[in-house]
Structure formats: C-alpha cells, structure tokens
Amino acid sequence: MSDDIEDRKRALRAELRRRRRNRTASERESAEAGITARLLELSERIGAASIAAYLSTPDEPGTRAWLRELDARGTRVLLPISRVDGLLDWAPYDGEAEESDILGMPTPTSEILGPIAINEVDLIVVPAAAVDRSGLRMGWGRGYFDKTLGSMENCPPVYAVIFDDELIDEVPRERHDMPVDGVVTPSGIVELRA
C-alpha cells in the first residue's frame, strides 16, 4: 500500500471516529430507530430468510433492535467472530449473552459454525467507516470483511450500515477493498451498484 493512501485512510478514519464519538445519546437513539426501520425494509424487500450481520459497537449505528426483531420473526442471523488468521467464523444470533472476540468486537456465545457458513445467506450487512458513491467501502483497517467478501463465489447483496454523513464522494482505494451494493443510513437505503 502506498504511504499516501495509507495516510489518507488514517486521517479519514480519525475524523470519522471523532464525529462518531461526538454524537449525543439522543442522536444515537434516533439513528438506531432509523437504521432498524431501514434494515427491516431492506431484508423484507430482498426476502431474506438468512442474513449475515454484526453486533454494533457503541460508536457504530446500532443494530441490536433490528437483530431482536429478526429473531422474533424467525429469520436466521449469523454474526462474525474474528480469528487470528484474519478470517471470520460465524455463529447464530440467539439474543442471549455476548462476549468479545480477539479484537474486542462483540460476538454471540452460540455454537461456532466456521467461515463457510456465510455462503448460505441471502443478505450480508457489514459495518463501515465510510462508503463512497461508487460503492467502495472503507472499513476500520483490519480487512476481515474484505477477505470474506473477496473469497465468496456467489455473494448475495451486501449493504453497509453508516450514519448519513458517512456516504461521501470518494474514499481512498486499495486493490483488496471490496465494494458494497448499497448503504443503509438512518434516513434511507441508497443503492450504489447496478
């Protein structure tokens, strides 16, 4: 990776982290309500019976209300668990206890299914730091989701969850960066790739 791209990504991530940490509790609650409604709309529109998603961290747009609703509706949800080899294991969401994986990310305590379990889902919902208008997703720099998406032969639709102001004109691009089909923000769903 060129130093210029690395520096641009580092600066953009720092700015996005700062903005996220400065959001008030009421802004976060309002954003989670919007995200929940939009994600339910998206999963219904796609007709997803099985979804790969994630448990949000405190700085991310909240996903837990959506996950609880999917569970109540009987939708199968798989959540990632980071591995030391840079891959993601997957485990079913059960609405029960949570723990932290090797990166400190929240994970379920249910049975681990392994990396290939994601191949059976109808929709993938991923976190992001920002997404640009061409669909390029910038994560937080560890590459777990890029590796997963890049290894899938028949990838279902992939949507990133971000705050409204994190859909930007351009993010710095590297060869391994994987695009998404759209974004879900508190105010709407934006399709980004045909």
Rank of each mutant, 00 (worst) to 15 (best):
I5V: 14
E6V: 14
A11T: 13
L12A: 11
R13S: 05
E15H: 14
S26D: 15
E27N: 11
E27R: 11
S30Q: 14
S30V: 11
A31F: 00
E32M: 14
G34T: 05
T36L: 06
L39K: 09
L40Q: 09
E41V: 11
S43T: 15
E44T: 13
A49G: 14
S50C: 15
A52Q: 07
L55S: 06
S56V: 01
T57S: 02
D59Q: 09
P61G: 05
G62W: 13
T63L: 09
T63K: 09
R64W: 10
R68C: 09
E69I: 12
R73T: 04
T75S: 08
R76W: 10
P80C: 07
S82G: 04
R83V: 05
D85H: 13
G86V: 06
L88W: 03
L88P: 02
L88M: 12
P92N: 07
Y93S: 03
G95D: 04
A97R: 12
D101H: 08
G104R: 06
G104Q: 06
M105A: 12
M105V: 14
P106V: 08
S110V: 04
E111Q: 11
L113I: 07
L113C: 07
G114P: 04
P115V: 10
I116Y: 10
I118L: 09
I118T: 12
N119C: 11
L123Y: 10
I124N: 08
I124M: 10
A128P: 00
A129H: 00
D132N: 04
S134V: 12
M138R: 10
G139T: 04
G143T: 11
Y144R: 12
Y144S: 09
F145D: 08
D146A: 15
G150H: 07
S151A: 15
M152H: 10
M152P: 05
C155P: 04
V158P: 02
A160Y: 07
F163K: 03
E166L: 03
I168T: 07
E170N: 12
V171F: 00
P172M: 01
E174Q: 15
R175S: 14
D177T: 01
V183T: 08
V184D: 01
G188Y: 06
G188I: 06
I189A: 07
